[in-house]
Amino acid sequence: MLTNQYTELNYAIYNDESELEEEDLKLIESARNACKTAYSPYSGFQVGAALLLENDKIVSGSNQENSSYPAGLCAERVALFHAGAEYGTLKVKKIAVTAQKKDSSFFVPVTPCGSCRQVMLEYEIKQNTPIEVIMQIAENKWVKTLSTEVLLPFCFNKDAL
């Protein structure tokens, strides 16, 4: 017997950055600043991520490439792993992700890769609280999800083990 199950994907699209909450804008600015510390000599693509913890502390990270490609890390995982190591008991409320091409002052659309989506979901499951995700999807157009599950609806998790 076939059963139909539908999940609501909770997200909002903002047609202008100014429509976002002040707290979101502050997080985006921290993610943009994190792009400056990216080590991206191979792709020239600088990614920054910033997390807002439950105590309102912001933790950021940037992509760190390596000539042995799989040895590098994306900005989202750098930020999450740093927060996990430094502030292990604090929950992550939000994450903002931004990107720009090297030697450019313009920010471009970016969304987390599959590995980052999986790690973000794992943190959400671990803390048993949704993590909002804020990403630029077009010039001055943003999407904000209410949970990382929106990014990975058919996820692999501990229930599959």
Score class of each variant (00 low, 15 high):
92 V>Y: 09
139 E>W: 02
66 N>I: 06
48 G>L: 09
87 Y>I: 01
77 R>E: 15
95 I>G: 01
135 M>V: 15
118 Q>N: 11
41 P>S: 02
111 T>K: 11
107 F>I: 07
130 P>M: 03
33 N>G: 12
96 A>V: 07
146 L>V: 01
125 I>L: 14
59 V>A: 02
116 C>P: 06
134 I>Q: 01
144 K>D: 00
42 Y>M: 06
45 F>W: 14
89 T>M: 11
83 A>R: 10
66 N>W: 04
85 A>M: 12
44 G>N: 07
135 M>W: 00
123 Y>M: 12
108 V>K: 05
137 I>G: 03
74 C>D: 15
80 L>E: 02
145 T>A: 06
107 F>D: 01
79 A>P: 09
137 I>Y: 06
63 N>V: 06
57 K>S: 13
71 A>E: 14
50 A>H: 07
53 L>S: 05
107 F>S: 04
36 K>W: 00
120 M>H: 01
69 Y>T: 13
116 C>Y: 08
42 Y>E: 05
154 F>P: 00
116 C>S: 14
98 T>G: 01
120 M>N: 01
33 N>Q: 14
90 L>K: 14
140 N>H: 09
136 Q>M: 15
89 T>K: 14
87 Y>G: 02
67 S>P: 14
32 R>A: 03
103 D>S: 12
68 S>V: 13
79 A>F: 10
130 P>A: 11
99 A>C: 12
52 L>M: 15
154 F>C: 07
54 E>N: 12
151 L>T: 03
104 S>H: 15
59 V>G: 08
56 D>Y: 11
125 I>N: 06
42 Y>C: 00
128 N>R: 13
70 P>D: 09
88 G>D: 08
132 E>I: 00
46 Q>N: 15
81 F>Y: 13
131 I>G: 06
72 G>H: 05
90 L>F: 13
38 A>H: 01
150 V>Q: 00
120 M>F: 02
130 P>W: 02
101 K>T: 10
92 V>W: 04
90 L>Y: 13
82 H>S: 14
119 V>P: 00
145 T>E: 04
110 V>N: 10
112 P>L: 11
